[in-house]
């Protein structure tokens, strides 16, 4: 191999955070999940967190594979149960930064109940949801996020169910940080991830990502690059927009931005407060008392 410039060969910045022996990964050409992993690695760099205390939890699915590729303590859990698993880990060891990295089907269909209750209790979890509008790994079935009219293997005449508006769902359940970006907005995704890692409380980031093999192909929308161009052309940045009005329609405009950024006492703070009030001196405090105050 020729080296034409006398410069120290620096490694790809993402490689410090990726298990390179497992590359090439399983994601299809044109899939945006790898792009979000790039953003995640840059965000970890910028947030300057102690990587010994960062944990990634994934469920099942294409995005669930992230746990297998990041060079951190990572857990690939059962379908839909990434949030319960992360909840247990956070409560036992509150000083960890627990990141749930999973797909739309895993988080909001199979794990939908866990998602809304973790948001309601304001558990200190950072939830990154890569939304490709379809069940990718199982063969392109309709997901709760599939837009009306989109064709999937289980909806050959077009989906007719109203999809979830994920930022609205997260906000109404009580999340303290809600944002939506696409795989095209790499700098903004990185910035949002950095903000989430520094924030306390239930944080939710939705990243729209192309699924060239199933969603794009079945709907005759071209390849991954076409999807990225669609995100570029049709995205409208509206920070602080009313989440009720930002539902996604089939190939329609996409409202992106940071919608919610509020403060609310987290689960452990509320528990400590309540138990101290009722039990007073008898209350021994939770594990990692210094952290949960």
């Amino acid at each position: 191999m020729s080296l034409t410039v006398e410069a120290p060969v620096q490694a790809n910045p993402v490689e410090a955070f990726v298990r390179t022996e497992r590359i090439p990964h399983v994601w299809c050409p044109g899939c945006g999940i790898g792009t979000t992993v790039n953003c995640f690695s840059r965000a970890l760099q910028q947030s300057k967190l102690d990587l010994e205390k960062v944990v990634v939890v994934s469920g099942i699915g294409c995005t669930g594979r992230v746990a297998g590729y990041v060079k951190l303590d990572s857990f690939h859990t059962t379908h839909g149960r990434a949030i319960p698993f992360a909840t247990g880990m956070k409560l036992v060891n509150p000083e960890l930064t627990v990141i749930v990295y999973s797909g739309d089907g895993d988080l909001t269909a199979i794990g939908g109940n866990h998602f809304i209750h973790a948001a309601r209790r304001n558990l200190d979890l950072k939830v990154i949801c890569v939304n490709n509008f379809i069940y990718g790994m199982t063969g392109g079935q309709v997901a709760p996020t599939t837009p009306v009219g989109a064709i999937c293997t289980t909806t050959p005449y077009g989906s007719f169910d109203e999809p979830f508006n994920l930022p609205f769902l997260a906000e109404s359940a009580g999340a303290t940080y809600v944002a939506r970006w696409t795989a095209f907005h790499v700098r903004q995704v990185t910035h949002a991830m950095t903000e989430m890692m520094r924030k306390k409380g239930f944080c939710f980031l939705e990243i729209l990502s192309p699924c060239p093999t199933l969603y794009q192909r079945r709907n005759r929308l071209g390849d991954g690059l076409e999807a990225m161009k669609y995100y570029k052309d049709q995205s409208v940045v509206r920070h602080g927009a009313n989440t009720k009005e930002i539902a996604i329609s089939f190939q329609g405009p996409i409202v992106v931005g940071k919608f919610i950024d509020i403060e609310r006492p987290v689960f452990l703070e509320r528990m400590n407060k309540q138990l101290t009030r009722t039990l007073d001196a008898e209350y021994a405090g939770c594990v990692g008392e210094n952290v949960c105050g």
């Binding site: 191999m1 034409t4 006398e6 410069a7 790809n12 993402v14 990726v18 390179t20 590359i23 945006g32």
Partner: peptide, 29 residues
């Protein structure tokens, strides 16, 4: 930005500071 977009971690670019023009700035990892 190529490094940020590449889903396969196959490309990245680094800035050179205070360097005059050299030969083609291209390196095959």
């Amino acid at each position: 930005l190529c490094g940020m977009y590449c889903p396969d971690f196959a490309i990245y670019a680094v800035m050179i500071k205070n360097r005059q023009q050299g030969s083609a700035a291209h390196h095959d990892a």
